[in-house]
Write a protein that binds this DNA or RNA. Sequence first.
RNA 1: CGGGGAGUAGCUCAGCCUGGUAGAGCAUGGCGUUUGGGACGCCAGGGCCGCAAGUUCGAAUCUUGUCUCCCCGACCA
Length: 463
Amino acid sequence: MSSPWALPKVAAAERGAPHVTCHSCFSLSRPEEIMRLSTYFLPTLKETPAEAQIASHRLMLRAGMVRQSASGIYTWLPLGLRVLKNIERIVREEQNAAGAQELLMPTIQSADLWRESGRYDAYGKEMLRITDRHEREMLYGPTNEELITQIFRDNVRSYREMPKILYQIQWKFRDEVRPRFGVMRGREFLMKDCYSFAMDYEGAKKAYEVMFNAYLKTFKRMGLTAIPMAADSGAIGGSLSHEFHILAETGESGVFYDVAYDELAAKDEIDLETLSKLYAVTDEKHDSSAANCPPAERLKEARGIEVGHIFYLGTKYSKAMNAVVPGPGGETVLAEMGCYGIGVSRLMGAIIEAYHDDRGIKWPEAVAPFKVGLINLKAGDATCDKTCEDIYRSLSENGVEVLYDDRDDRAGVKFADMDLIGLPWQLVAGPKGLAVGVVELKNRLSGEKVELSVEAALARLTA
RNA sequence: CGGGGAGUAGCUCAGCCUGGUAGAGCAUGGCGUUUGGGACGCCAGGGCCGCAAGUUCGAAUCUUGUCUCCCCGACCA
């Protein structure tokens, strides 16, 4: 048995033998924290894989972020995972700020629970059904209303504990007939699903509004403009419902909206009152004779990617599953519910659709896998190596995440890879520049390049 | 689920029509020349031609079945 972990022993046994450079033990013998591209698992592709049609899918494959494992099911490689975690972090922070509390439910659920709500039979083939060794019927959760309602009814015993807003960020599975567009319509996907419980309609409406606002903030932090649209409530049920769409040419939904939204979206604090009066709907709800439908010259038609969906559920599930709370007078009250979803993994596709060019991705800083790509144009050159490592340490100490391209490769390869993976800043250090005391700083989004001293570059990146 | 297309080297694909030693470019490894925007030369490694059955002296190629993947449509975060 030979494993890389055995290498140090072998080396010790052969003490005195001339040192042999070995790539597998090289990294193990250097327990430092530098993210070096020479050892980082980043399988980029020069050519476009045949299966990818849209930009985000192509770029996620080419940039070494994901690999398809089966139709609509993906492995997240290190670079992709970092972005996924960043998106997740922003969603989590905004949910917490909105007063929601995080929990984690299982992916596998019992069919009996779904029979209580009547959805085990109603859901259809999109639900992946599984039988365990005891022939018990199980399922891989496509959503979690039943489970959360059970948790709620079993554990909340008084109106004094109300209201409650609970959420999780968990993998879901929906056996789509036709998965496509990479992670934008996968079968397995990461979703934030949140559920609110209140004593009455007013309480439910308040939770709905809080989430509505939280969603606008969440998407904005990722550099996206999301338009809330009156929408069909679909299979999940309920009456009040909004979809949040990112405008993109490759969007799957047709949408119509009042141009006034564009001006409104530019502001920091969005006035809900004004917003709620604006016309914005998906194509199936579009009605040019509607009272608030603007005249043709103020009506915009576009394509949208649905990244969030919120519902007022009423007592649909609390009634079916007997989720009641004793009120102040001892009476039993059915919980008024709402549910709120964000497609976390889909967002990554949506962000790339919004931020890319023909060379690659252009990450907004908030979700970028690293803030800075440090390019050493002449790895092995003592001055270049030392300068780069000093820059790396200095940035790290200031909390800036850096990916260091220390590969012994041609400049063109490095520039091309760095443009492809789309880190917001590229810091280029080469022998010619260093000879006159400068490095080059490039902004991936604007394409702007400046030559400046190492100190000035560090100051700019840590500002 | 209806309609269409494709499975051949890590990736992009040719070869199939007309059956006869499995190919190219890129990628990978070695050597040399190079080195500030995806370099060049030479050499090398790499394939149950998706799987199964059939026809045939002989199948990547013909027939049947099957699995997988992609695209268009209907459905969904």
